[in-house]
Computed example of a mutant assay.
Amino acid sequence: MLLFRSSFWTTLLLAGTLGCSKSSPTVVPQGPPPTTPVATTFTNPLLAAGPDPWVYQKDGFYYYMHTTGNNVVLRKTAKMSELGSAVSTTIWAAPATGPNSQNVWAPELHFLDGKWYVYFTAGPPGCCGGQRLWMLENANADPTTGAWTERGQLAVPGQDLWAIDGTILEQNGGRYLLWSGQEPNSEQQNLYICRMSSPTALTGARVQLSAPQYGWELNGFPKVNEAPQVLRHGSKTVLVYSASHCSTDDYALGMLTAPATADPMMLASWTKSPTPIFVKNPAGQAYGPGHNGFFTSRTGNEDWIIYHANPRTGQGCGDSRSPRMQKFTWRADDTPDFGTPVPLGVSLPRAGSSAGNPSYFFSPR
């Protein structure tokens, strides 16, 4: 009997213990959820295709464009290394017919006098012979929203000549258009400058600043100087341009320099480098590097060049040209040192990951 009672109370006590355990489970402390490591590097190319890349930065964002052939597309991103995931917005599509219905090339976005402007190249049906500069305008704060209005052709008064690759230079309180154009009855491409009376109009005569003259500028046909871009560093204004025809592997970057206070309409203000400053790197799958743009890191302490190049020899002027970017430095004479095109697939530190000395570009921030 004693054995029974002992077993009974033991069983009852065990049941009560299990009941308490079920109604009051043990709580295991949980740590914070695992975090995804932030990438500190990137690799080129930024996109599989993207000829004639251009970047404009404002209010903490980068706006990116490149040649598409039949429309104007704008991408917005906070990080250039994440360009591939940026949302694309088509802001203009070429009409079915007309003087700007074909060969839409090299769009550039600029913020001028409180509005956004895009300068791009286009022509009528045919193989590029009628290329001219055209304009779009948007008064919205964010250029990826609001209405874009076509503002027509941008031409030198009294002239209607072949023109591509328009960009903006601001110096000494004046504003100027730089572009690649031709003389009458000639297919050779030269660099020109003309004063702007407004973001949509030129005034006065144009001045030729550069023509193909050195051996490295004369590869392919026609002979080419094109895609002018502007930097300012220290006391110097630097005009970087592309030379030789894009159909060749030897498409490369050249340079003109002028004092930052000089009159840019005076040819005597400019000095042309006799040697190229950025050339192909076959071992790194970079053929025909050129048609570049510039931007700074969001912290303002790094300078970057963005450019296109082909991954293999003989690929010419097509969509195999991909956009790539890399940091650059400055020489003691205030000219840029772009180094060598970095090989595809090599890990590079993202923008803002190291310190440096800020320079100043002409594009307003």
Rank of each mutant, 00 (worst) to 15 (best):
A147N: 13
F120P: 00
S273W: 01
P264G: 07
T97G: 14
A96R: 07
F61T: 15
P311N: 06
Y176Q: 03
E108S: 06
N292I: 07
S353T: 10
A286R: 05
L191Q: 08
P349R: 10
L267V: 13
D142R: 10
T257E: 01
A268N: 15
V38D: 15
H291G: 00
A94V: 03
G339I: 02
V118N: 04
F295S: 01
T296G: 07
G126L: 09
G98L: 05
Q182I: 13
W9T: 12
T275C: 04
N292M: 10
S197W: 11
G234F: 03
V27W: 12
T335G: 04
S210F: 02
D249K: 01
G290K: 00
V346F: 04
K76Y: 01
W92E: 01
G130P: 01
A201T: 05
N100V: 04
G339A: 04
P343G: 07
K280N: 06
P25Y: 10
L136H: 04
V118R: 05
Y307I: 03
T257K: 05
R151N: 12
Q57W: 10
G234C: 03
R331A: 15
T41L: 08
A355V: 02
R132I: 02
S85A: 12
A332V: 11
A268M: 13
L177P: 01
V207A: 10
H245K: 02
Q131E: 11
S273A: 14
L169Q: 09
T68P: 02
S23H: 13
L177Q: 08
S101Y: 13
L74H: 01
S297Q: 08
Q315N: 08
L267N: 05
L3Q: 13
N292C: 15
M266D: 15
Q285F: 06
R350T: 03
C246D: 01
L154V: 02
R365W: 06
D333I: 01
G352L: 03
T68K: 14
R324C: 12
Y241L: 13
S242E: 00
T335F: 00
G166A: 12
G146P: 05
G316E: 11
Q171W: 03
F295T: 07
W116H: 09
Q208D: 03
F120D: 02
V230F: 05
P25M: 08
Q30Y: 11
H110L: 00
S354W: 12
C317D: 01
L18G: 15
T144Y: 07
K58Q: 14
L267Y: 09
A355N: 09
A147V: 15
G356W: 05
D249L: 06
A155Q: 11
C127N: 15
L239R: 06
G288H: 02
A147C: 10
P358H: 04
N281F: 00
H291T: 04
L18Q: 12
G254Y: 00
G158N: 07
N100T: 08
S85T: 14
P341N: 03
K22E: 08
T26M: 14
R321I: 00
T167M: 07
L239E: 00
R365I: 08
K327C: 06
F278A: 10
P45R: 13
R5Q: 12
N281S: 11
D59P: 01
A268V: 05
Q188A: 14
Q102E: 08
R350A: 08
F111S: 09
T67K: 10
L209P: 01
A141K: 11
